[in-house]
Design a protein around this nucleic acid. Structure first.
Length: 419
RNA sequence: GGAGGGGUGGGAGAGCGGCCGAAUCCGCCAGUUUGGAGAACUGGUGUACCCUCGUGGUACCGCGGGUUCAAAUCCCGCCCCCUCCGCCA
C-alpha cells in the first residue's frame, strides 16, 4: 500500500509513475476521499473533545452533589451526533482504504517502461546448449524413466497436480533439501512455516484482495492454502518494531505452493511447466531502506548460485512496468533454458517491495539514531521453484541414448549418477 | 470436540465505570558520581492520526459490536494462548 501522505504531497508525479503500470489509474478520487476523511476527522474530534470535557464535568458535579441533568441532556445529543459522524467517517475510511489497496507500488526509476515484452535481458549465463541429437521433452523423459505419473495423480486430485515417482520423487526431494541447505550456508535462517494462512496474512503480502481467485480457500476454517512462501514470510514480523542492528533479517523457507491457475493453458505448458501444486524454496529479507537495492543484488546472486551449481544455462531479465506484481517496485526474473521449446522459463522472481508490504503489515524498524520507527523494506525471491527446475535438468542433462545425468550436488541424495 | 483459566506499554504485573494512556518493578536512554566500569542517585522513556502546529486535540489495555454523559473496567460475538479430558498422525 502506498503512503497517503506521499500521494498528497505529489499527486501528479506519483500518478504519472503509476500510469506506466496501468494507464487507467487516476488519483483524483482518492484525494477527494482523503480530503473528505480529514475534514470529518477534524469535526468528529472537536465534538469528542467537547464531550470529554463535559463528561469530566459531570463527574465533578456528581461528586459535589450538584445537579447535572441539563448537562447530561446536552451531552446525550452530542453523543448521538458523534456516533453519526463516526459512522460516516468509517464508511469514508473504508472507501479510501479500498481505493488505496488497489494501487500498485511505485516503480523504481530503473524499471523499463513498457509491456511484458519490453523486459531487459541483463545477462545470460553460459552457452545455449545445442545438442546434436533429437532432444526429448521433459514429459517424454519422465514417462520413459518413470519419474512422474500425471494420470494417476489426476485420479487422486485432478489434472495438473503433479506426482513424482521413483527417482523422480527422490530428485524432487533432493533438490528441495539441497537448496535449503545451500541458502542456510549463505546466512539465511531456515524456516518451515505453516502451509496455510489467514486472510490478514494474505492482505499484508498483497495477494488479497486482488488475487482471491488464484488462491485455494478452505472455507470451513477460513484458511488459504499457501500460493508462495512470500505471503507467509512477510508476516513473520508483522506488527513488530525491529532494532536497526537486527537488520537485515534473512530467511529461507521451503513450502509447497498451491495455485488455482484459473484460465487456460497452452500446449507448451504441458507437464511440469504450469501446475496447481509445486515446491518452492523462497528467500526473504527484511532490511533498512537505504540498503535494499544492494540487498536485492545479493538476493539475485543467491538465487543464481543455485542455477550455477546445477550447471544450467539461464538468463536474467529485468521486468518492465506492466509485468510486475502489484507489490513490487522492481523485479528481476531468472529464466532457465528448455531446449525442446527453445525458450526460457521463469524459475525465480526477485523483487524489492520497498515499504508496500511493511506498510500493510506495520513492519517497522528503529533507525540507529534512536529516532521514530520507520517502515522497513521487504524483498523476496524464489531460490528456486522445483518443477521447472526438474524439467530443465531432465531436458538439459539428457543423452542421446535417453539417460539423464544427475547434477553432482544432488547425486548423494538421489543415490545414483544417472536416472 | 468438551471443561476451566488467561490476553494491559520493550518485559513482568496492578487497575475492574469518571481523578487511568494507565501504579509498581525490570529494561532502555541521558545526567550526577568514578581514572574507567559497576553500584547508587536524579530525570526521561509507547504508537498512530488530525488541526488553528500548541505547555493543542483524538484514538488505541487481543479483535469487533453494544450499554452509558463517560468503558481497560459492564454486556454480546469472535480470535489467540495456557491447563485438563476426549479423539487422532
Amino acid at each position: 500500500m502506498l503512503d497517503i501522505h506521499a500521494l498528497r504531497e505529489d499527486p501528479a508525479g506519483i500518478e504519472k509513475r503509476l500510469q506506466t503500470r496501468d494507464p487507467s489509474i487516476e488519483l483524483s478520487g482518492i484525494l477527494a476521499l482523503d480530503e473528505k476523511r480529514r475534514s470529518l476527522i477534524t469535526l468528529v474530534e472537536e465534538r469528542k473533545a467537547e464531550r470529554n470535557r463535559g463528561s469530566a464535568d459531570v463527574g465533578h458535579l456528581k461528586k459535589q452533589g450538584g445537579d447535572a441533568d441539563a448537562l447530561l441532556a446536552r451531552l446525550q445529543m452530542l453523543s448521538d451526533e458523534i456516533s453519526a459522524l463516526d459512522n460516516e467517517l468509517r464508511a469514508v475510511t473504508e472507501d479510501l482504504q479500498g481505493e488505496l489497496q488497489r494501487l500498485p507500488n511505485i516503480p523504481h526509476p530503473t524499471v523499463p517502461v513498457g509491456e511484458k515484452e519490453d523486459k531487459v535481458i541483463l545477462k545470460t549465463h553460459g552457452e545455449k546448449p545445442e545438442p546434436e541429437f533429437e532432444v526429448r521433452s521433459h514429459v517424454a523423459i519422465g514417462e520413459r524413466l518413470g519419474l512422474f505419473d500425471f494420470e494417476r495423480a489426476a485420479r487422486i486430485a485432478g489434472s495438473r497436480f503433479p506426482m513424482y515417482t521413483g527417482r523422480g520423487a527422490l530428485l524432487e526431494m533432493a533438490l528441495v533439501s539441497w537448496m535449503v541447505r545451500h541458502h542456510a550456508q549463505r546466512d539465511y535462517t531456515p524456516i518451515w512455516p505453516p502451509f496455510v494462512a489467514n486472510e490478514e496474512s494474505f492482505y499484508v503480502s498483497s495477494q488479497l484482495p486482488k488475487f482471491a481467485d488464484e488462491i485455494y480457500y478452505v472455507e470451513k476454517d477460513r484458511l488459504y492454502l499457501n500460493p508462495t512462501a512470500e505471503s507467509l514470510l512477510v508476516n513473520l514480523h508483522r506488527d513488530e518494531i525491529l532494532a536497526a542492528a537486527d537488520l537485515p533479517r534473512k530467511y529461507v523457507a521451503y513450502t509447497p505452493c498451491f495455485r488455482r491457475e484459473a484460465g487456460s493453458y497452452g500446449e507448451e505448458e504441458r507437464g511440469l511447466i504450469r501446475v496447481h501444486q509445486f515446491n518452492k524454496v523462497e528467500l526473504f529479507k527484511f532490511c533498512a531502506p537505504e540498503r535494499s537495492y544492494d540487498e536485492l543484488g545479493t538476493l539475485i546472486e543467491d538465487a543464481e548460485s543455485v542455477l550455477m551449481a546445477l550447471g544450467l544455462h539461464y538468463r536474467v531479465a529485468l521486468l518492465s512496468t506492466k509485468d510486475m506484481a502489484q507489490q513490487a517496485s522492481k523485479t528481476v526474473d531468472l529464466e532457465v533454458y528448455l531446449p525442446t521449446q527453445g525458450r526460457y522459463y521463469e524459475v525465480s522472481s526477485c523483487s524489492n517491495c520497498e515499504t508496500f508490504q511493511s506498510r500493510r503489515g506495520a513492519i517497522r524498524y528503529r533507525p540507529v539514531d534512536n529516532g521514530k520507527p520507520e517502515f522497513l523494506h521487504t524483498l523476496n525471491g524464489s531460490g528456486l521453484a522445483t518443477p521447472r527446475l526438474v524439467a530443465a535438468i531432465l531436458e538439459n542433462n539428457q543423452t542421446e541414448d535417453g539417460r539423464v545425468w544427475v547434477p553432482e550436488v544432488l547425486q548423494d541424495a538421489v543415490g545414483v549418477e544417472w536416472l
